[in-house]
Design a protein around this nucleic acid. Structure first.
Length: 840
RNA sequence: GCCGAAGUGGCGGAAUAGGCAGACGCGACGGUCUCAAAAACCGUUGGGCAUUUGGCCCAUGUGGGUUCGAGUCCCACCUUCGGCACCA
């Protein structure tokens, strides 16, 4: 045994021992409170990078802390193994995606072990294996049976680089680029498989109130779902009483202010009602709009355009005809694809009306204006003078609206909604921005969609007992990225399971977000029923085990998945509940989003910038404990921050100091016994640190947790050279230090624990409780201010009363210097904190 | 444009039921050790002024406000980052 701190030696030694003794094996113990701790599973790109460490090391510390608190903690891991990089490697380097992926996984397993995590390797899952993805297909089939999976032809986003369609959630930013590769997407009209996530829109919204997730994520999801309440009603065409269209509005109270109506250029009615003399112009506009949507969508800088189609619609509330226009600011994909335009009270309509000289009748005025009886406020001059639409709801009162004049929000909404329901075939309606989840991908390396197309029977789902549809291994990869499945004769041709006719398989595979939508359930029993015949009545995991562990208690991962994975998995759980697989509504009860770790230059790590930090280099130089602690020390976990190559030295020095504190004998020997005060002071430091560190682990405040441990160890280094060394209080301090370090720095604490002769393993010890009584100070220093400025500091007993403190403060000569010649007006005493003397 | 988060020393960051701003660490400077260097250890370190001791003033993006007292609360603005983008 060496006396020097050699992390490389001790870390591998303990990692081996932990595995041999199966320290972290999962046991279902009904007497213990279970804690399912989960961190987002990595994509096996080949190397565990700093981002993985930043996500996983603090998660591991939090999981280990819970474990020491006496909870039955399960912390599994797996690999999100389907996806494009594997297929691209196949195309570029002629290596099969399966081989490439499994090789990477092997490498990353080793790296994950080096991190010293308590991952439960006995329940690892790899999503690209048939035993896993057969359940993707089983779920698809279930959803199909329930009407949750459907196929339709509609404009979809296509990434020309990835050669596949994308879900709306995977199209990001102003330029509408592919979330994965950054290429701007184009729009294509294709038949694609979708999941009816919109069916759960309301529930996805309401469920947010029941889970302990960061507000940021909740807000992102709420905005993404984009619920808006309004009224849909009918507008008849003047002179063509057989024809009508429906409009959606969130402001039925403004209906009297309608001065025109707008149809989306693609609206089916345009064709029928356009007046002959306008036809040419209208067709040109429609063609232009269509072309626009097929090109990379340009930002139009808000400039609106449209054309009058020579037809009029009847405003149901007052029977007035209004001109019908078409304009591309009205989208066919939202609401009814048609709107009533109220320029005075909608900014977009306002801009349009100004551009084309359409009237702007005011029908809502502020309450004060109404109460003042100021009629000029809604005169023509007032409308002409408007610089922007008046869109406020609260405090708005209806005017120029016949029988509704004087009605204020929100009664105005209800009254007009009711009127429209009764007179214009109207109904209250809720619209959502959320679209159904497009799951078809035109790529090879994914789960085959279990569908067969039969010329006789049409679309036929693969029977449960024929699952899984195996992804054929012998694929010919094309440089274009076109899916090899389309050309794989053996895969393609199949007999129809219903009539036996020659039929073909669906060649699209599933979005890989399918895999991660339910992996937390798969971990319960990885590859459940692999090789067995599946049936509709199955449960994709061992039911009894699942009942103990599910749902996930604490989830950690990046916020970039806010409207993708984190939305999909919530949808999936609700759908699974409706299938009867689970009896809860939300998959993850608590969520914490860690930040992003940046390069030393403060920029996002990237190969092109050359600022990528390879954690392996630092692990071999300083050891995993140092890297773990450093990542926790950098700053608040949800904030991320730059990797400072010099900062890690400081953390490493701290570990060396702790090592020497425990292992080396003191420099001096003392023959006098320690006095009571020294003992009390030491115990106070110990218990103060215990309370602080405990609170910080609870709240994932790892940076201040490490800082507190550093402070405490500095105290101990000084105390070591005093008579308290070797006392019971000293033992308590050292033991507490190691126990507090154990979750964050599992190897060094285990080694020092063993060197103290304590029983294996430190990771099976109960968490040391801090005692608030022992942590209490006896004497506190309080500041004395005169007119808000600190002029003196005095020592007072912690329980000194206000009067005593005030007297002591006023007795201070330094204070008297500042109050001399002044009258004391007021003395504010905050016990234990400060005194402020107001004098002038 | 809208929504959200955030602006504190040379740097990463502490401190918010309003109560001593700058914990902890990095860097820098000085010292011990050494032939020397590295490492390690000890000390100093927000800015300015003063300095024989005690000191004084200014400081948490900017400008106001509330308060005995504001990094923390309120109003307006500036900057950065993230998200959404004609959603009717």
């Amino acid at each position: 045994m060496t006396d020097r701190y050699e992390p490389q030696t001790i870390e591998s030694k303990w990692q081996q021992k932990w595995e041999e003794t199966r320290l972290y094996r999962r046991v279902e113990d009904p007497d213990k409170e279970k804690w399912y701790f989960l961190t987002m599973l990595p994509y096996p790109s080949g190397d565990l990078h700093t981002g993985h460490w930043y996500a996983m090391a603090p998660s591991d510390a939090a999981a280990r802390y819970r474990r020491m608190r006496g909870m039955n903690v399960w912390f599994p891991i797996g690999f999100d193994a389907f996806g494009l990089p594997a297929e691209n490697a196949a195309i570029k380097r002629n290596i099969h995606p399966h081989k490439w992926t499994m090789r990477n996984i092997e490498r990353m397993r080793g790296q994950l072990r080096q991190m010293g995590t308590m991952f439960d390797w006995e329940h690892e899952a790899i999503t690209c294996l048939p035993g896993y993805y057969q359940w993707n297909q089983w779920f698809f089939r279930k959803f199909y049976d329930m009407g949750l999976a459907y196929r339709d032809k509609a404009p979809v986003d296509w990434c020309p680089t990835c050669n596949t369609t994308l879900a709306r959630e995977q199209v990001w930013g102003e330029d509408r680029h592919c979330e994965r590769c950054g290429t701007p997407v184009i729009v294509k009209e294709l038949e694609q498989w979708k999941f009816r996530i919109t069916k759960y829109a309301d529930e996805l919204l309401e469920g947010l109130d029941k889970i302990d997730w960061p507000e940021r994520v909740k807000t992102l999801q709420r905005n993404w779902i984009g619920r808006s309440e309004g009224v849909e009603f009918e507008m008849k065409i003047q002179g063509r009483e057989d024809l009508s269209f429906r409009v959606f509005t969130t402001r039925p109270d403004t209906t009297f202010g309608m001065s025109f109506a707008v149809l989306a250029p693609e609206h089916p009615l345009v064709e029928q009602i356009t007046a002959p003399e306008y036809r040419e112009e209208v067709e040109a506009y429609v063609a232009k709009a269509k072309r626009k949507s097929e090109l990379v969508r340009q930002q139009e800088a808000g400039e609106k355009s449209g054309v009058f189609i020579g037809a009029y619609a009847i405003n149901p509330v007052n029977g007035q005809p209004v001109p019908i226009w078409i304009a591309d600011y009205v989208l066919m994909t939202y609401g009814t694809g048609a709107i009533m335009a109220v320029p005075a009270h909608d900014q977009r309509d306002f801009e349009f009306a100004r551009k084309y000289g359409l009237p702007t009748p005011i029908v809502i005025v502020p309450k004060e204006v109404w109460e003042a009886g100021d009629a000029s406020a809604w005169s023509e001059e007032a409308a002409a003078a408007m610089e922007a639409a008046y869109t406020l709801k609260e405090g708005g009162v209806m005017v120029n609206s016949g029988p509704f004049d004087g009605t204020a929000w929100p009664q105005s909404f209800d009254a007009t909604a009711k009127w429209l329901e009764e007179h214009a075939a109207g109904e209250r309606k809720i619209n959502y921005r959320l679209r159904d989840w497009l799951i078809s991908r035109q790529r090879y390396w994914g789960t085959p969609i279990p569908i067969i197309y039969c010329p006789e029977c049409g679309t036929v789902p693969v029977p449960y007992e024929d699952l899984p549809v195996i992804l054929p291994e012998d694929a010919q990869f094309r440089p274009t990225g076109e899916s090899p499945l389309k050309f794989h004769e053996a895969f393609l041709h199949v007999k129809c399971p219903v009539c036996g006719a020659d039929a073909t398989r669906e060649t699209d595979t599933m979005d890989t977000f399918m895999d991660s939508s339910w992996y937390q359930y798969a971990y319960v029993s990885p590859y459940w029923k692999e090789g067995e015949t599946l049936s509709p009545d199955d449960i994709p995991w061992d039911k009894a085990v699942g009942e103990y562990w599910l749902p996930v208690d604490q989830y950690t991962g990046g916020i970039e998945h806010a409207t993708m994975h984190l939305l999909y998995t919530r949808f999936f759980t609700k759908a699974m509940r409706d299938v009867g697989l689970v009896d809860f509504d939300e998959p993850m009860l608590r969520l914490f989003n860690q930040g992003i770790i940046l390069g030393a230059d403060g920029e996002k790590m990237s190969k092109s910038r050359g600022n990528v930090v390879n954690p392996d280099d630092y692990v071999s130089k300083y050891g995993a404990d140092t890297v773990r602690a450093f990542l926790m020390f950098i700053g608040p976990w949800d904030q991320g921050g730059p990797w400072d190559p010099r900062g890690i030295e400081g953390v490493h020095r701290f570990l060396h100091r702790v090592w020497s504190l425990v292992v080396d004998p003191p420099k001096k020997q003392h023959d006098q016994p320690a006095d009571d005060k020294a003992i009390t002071d030491l115990r106070r430091a110990t218990h103060k640190t215990l309370l602080k560190v405990t609170e910080d682990y609870e709240k994932f405040k790892f940076n201040t947790m490490i800082a507190a441990l550093m402070g405490f160890s500095n105290t101990l280094i000084a105390a070591k050279e005093t008579p308290v060394y070797g006392t019971e209080a000293w033992d308590e301090a050292i033991t507490s230090l190691l126990l507090m370090m154990a979750p964050a720095m599992p190897h060094i604490s285990e080694e020092l624990w063993a060197r103290l002769g304590k029983p294996y393993s430190i990771h099976q010890q109960p968490w040391p409780e801090g005692d608030p009584e022992l942590a209490k100070e006896e004497v506190v220093e309080i500041a004395i201010q005169v007119n808000g400025k600190v002029r003196d500091r005095i020592q007072v007993a912690v329980d000194a009363d206000k009067a005593g403190i005030e007297a002591a403060a006023l007795a201070s000569p330094r204070v008297q210097k500042w109050t001399a010649g002044k009258t004391i007006r007021k003395v504010i005493v905050v016990p234990g904190r400060m005194v402020n003397i107001v004098a002038n």
